[in-house]
């Protein structure tokens, strides 16, 4: 995502992402570690950089057998709720300091989010796809194993707010906390 501009010009990161949903907990309320982040950054100078990042996460939840009544009938089933969430963002970064090992930063990303809300019950399934705008403020740090290493680790905490929602499943705009840990490849 970033590094010392005097030493490095670009970086590529790959991270494992955990999502904690803040919205629509009735649909997918459980924390999920089924997520990935991929990103590329270009360093402008020691303080600033920009880049893009793609992310893919799956949230899911299980609802035990329940009887749902509606006018003229009722249905009993257990349900597996799934939310497949893909983001593509441009971002800008600000680096607080360039330490020997740690490079803390904050960033703001904006882009497009694609989501698929899907329910599975027995062999049946229903889904609703939509596209929205997403914004992601984030703070994190890089950790260089050696001072001039081209390999490092990354940890970041961010918050996604996306305009994606499903009228079909009556979900609201998507909001979730993200925690990412991963690896960084630094290029001089």
């Amino acid at each position: 995502m970033l590094t010392n501009a005097q030493e490095y010009s670009t970086a590529f990161h790959l991270g494992w992402n955990t999502m904690v949903p803040f919205s629509d907990k009735d649909f997918t309320g459980s924390t999920s570690s089924a997520g990935i982040r991929l990103g590329y950054s270009k360093f402008v100078n020691e303080k600033f950089g920009f880049g893009f990042e793609a992310g893919y996460s799956t949230l899911d939840d299980y609802v035990p057998p329940t009887t749902y009544e509606y006018p003229g009938g009722a249905i009993t089933t257990d349900i597996y709720n799934y939310l497949y969430y893909f983001t593509l963002m441009a971002n800008g970064q600000y680096y607080f300091a360039q330490g020997e090992h740690f490079i803390p930063y904050t960033s703001l990303g904006m882009g497009v989010a694609f989501s698929e809300y899907k329910i599975f019950y027995n062999v049946y399934q229903e889904n609703d796809n939509n596209t929205g705008f997403v914004i992601r403020p984030e703070i994190g740090t890089l950790f260089k194993i050696k001072e001039y290493s081209s390999f490092g680790l990354k940890a970041a905490l961010g918050f996604d707010y996306a305009t994606n929602k499903s009228d079909y499943f009556e979900t609201k705009n998507l909001a979730a906390l993200n925690f990412q840990i991963g690896i960084v490849f630094l290029n001089r």
Partner: peptide, 8 residues
């Protein structure tokens, strides 16, 4: 998924 049947 198929642990329980759907009954409508």
């Amino acid at each position: 998924l198929v642990k329980y049947m759907v009954v409508e």
